[in-house]
Write a protein that binds this DNA or RNA. Structure first.
Length: 430
DNA sequence: GAGCATGATTCCGC
DNA sequence: GCGGAATCATGCTC
């Protein structure tokens, strides 16, 4: 404790109080030199100075017991007292030393891991930080996750996603700006208050800094809530976007036709190569993954219920046959053959040997002999042989007992004309 | 709204 | 990693 402050209070103290009021330096009614408690020396050299300080302290201690007017008058006197700066300085020093009111702000502000996570996420999503196309990276990543190319539908969804993300970004930044503005205003307000208060009580610069840091902490807590809300909004948007991608949409008729044509023209081995998948995907306006899905589903469902697909198979067989007869290539002849297909796997019928066609159409009409003949040539001997004219116009490939696909290359594997449509040789048939 | 069709996803085996 | 199988979820038709 500073000795200067611990001087014994003047006996009777009341005199000092009155003296203090009258001791206003340069104040009205101040007798030159007479009311100066510390004399002209400007310091506290002797017992008188100590007594003055004691008087001041006594005044301060008793000010609450006095009437408002009296207290105001004393307060004013204290404010104007020439010893006030020195006293305040000492008090500030004591406050700093005791460390009660001023704690290290750094100790209280470890980097919040949650805030870090939120910041990182907002940065990654393109909400915080410099604008990078409104989260197009995230949208692209999501598109990649969907597996494969980007369909026109996807681009629409991406733009929708981007615009929604841009909205979130806009709201986030405007709110952040508001918070910062409010924080600055409040800080200024508090600083003014403290400056005002510093006239009546000792306010150390460090105390002011601490107040500012407290205000910033409070506002950063609010900002964290904002960041949390923004993250939640992004998450919701993202999940909705992903859900939208997950939403099933039937392929176009033309796409299904292309896929079916390939499937039925490669029935012996309906496993398109990567190149074929890409080609099909391009033709159908879908992704390679969707092509894979489609073939996966088709194989299984075909195998499970060959009878049901009989008619469909006939239709595509006829279509292919006609196109072969007309030009030797089907409409969808471009995809490259699957490497695994023993048939040669080309998209066109010729050489594929996958089709076993009876020439009567589904409605019983027969195809012109010229077409039949051309098919005979294109498919080679033994492809459909004597089955032309039979009740069965199409025979599905046999499916091996172990569930695999078996290319039926001999007429023996062709469904007997005596068997009804849908009668198949399959362990997995219904 | 029920039932079926169909694209997508998941799990599992190879 | 690919394909088979089961399953889910949605679209479509009646």
């Amino acid at each position: 404790m500073d000795e200067r402050l611990l001087g014994p209070p003047p006996p009777g103290g009341g005199r000092g109080g009155l003296g203090l009021v009258g001791a206003e330096p340069g104040g009205p009614g101040e007798p030159p030199g007479g009311g100066d408690p510390g004399g002209g020396s400007g310091g506290v050299p002797g017992g008188r100075g100590k007594q003055d300080i004691g008087d001041i302290l006594q005044q301060i201690m008793t000010i609450t017991d006095q009437s408002l007017d009296e207290a105001q008058a004393k307060k004013h006197a204290l404010n104007c007292h020439r010893m006030k700066p020195a006293l305040f300085s000492v008090l500030c020093e004591i406050k700093e030393k005791t460390g009660l009111s001023i704690r290290s702000s750094q100790e209280e502000e470890p980097v919040d891991p949650q805030l870090m996570r939120l910041d990182n996420m907002l940065l990654a999503e393109g909400v915080a930080g410099p604008e990078k196309g409104g989260g197009s990276a995230a949208a692209a990543a999501a598109a990649a996750a969907s597996g494969g190319g980007v369909s026109p539908d996807n681009s629409i969804e991406h733009s929708d996603y981007r615009s929604k993300l841009a909205q979130i970004r806009h709201i986030y930044h405007s709110e952040l700006e508001k918070y910062e503005q409010a924080c600055n205003e409040f800080t200024t307000h508090v600083m003014n208050l403290l400056r005002e208060q510093s006239r009546t009580r000792p306010v150390a610069p460090k105390e002011m800094e601490r107040m500012v840091s407290i205000i910033h902490r409070k506002f950063s807590a609010i900002q964290m809530q904002l960041k949390q809300s923004t993250c939640e909004a992004v998450m919701i948007l993202r999940s909705r976007f992903l859900d939208a991608r997950r939403k099933r949409r039937n392929f176009s008729k033309q796409a299904t036709e292309v896929l079916n044509e390939y499937f039925y023209s490669h029935l012996s081995s309906p496993y398109p190569s990567e190149e074929a998948k890409e080609e099909l995907a391009k033709k159908c306006g879908i992704t390679v993954s969707q092509v894979s899905n489609w073939f996966g589903n088709k194989r299984i469902r075909y195998k499970k219920n060959i009878g049901k697909f009989q008619e469909e198979a006939n239709i595509y067989a006829v279509k292919t046959a006609v196109s072969v007869a007309q030009g030797g290539h089907s409409r969808t002849s471009s995809p490259t053959p699957p490497s695994s297909a023993g048939s040669g796997g080309s998209f066109n019928l010729s050489g594929s040997g996958d089709m076993f066609l009876g020439m009567p159409g589904l409605n019983g009409d027969s195809y012109p002999a010229s077409q039949v003949e051309s098919l005979r040539h294109s498919m080679g001997p033994g492809s459909y042989g004597d089955n032309i004219g039979g009740g069965q116009i199409y025979s599905p490939r046999e499916i091996r007992a172990n569930g695999g696909w078996q290319e039926a290359v001999t007429p023996s594997s062709v469904t007997s004309p005596t068997e009804g449509p849908g009668s198949v040789h399959s362990d997995t048939s219904n």
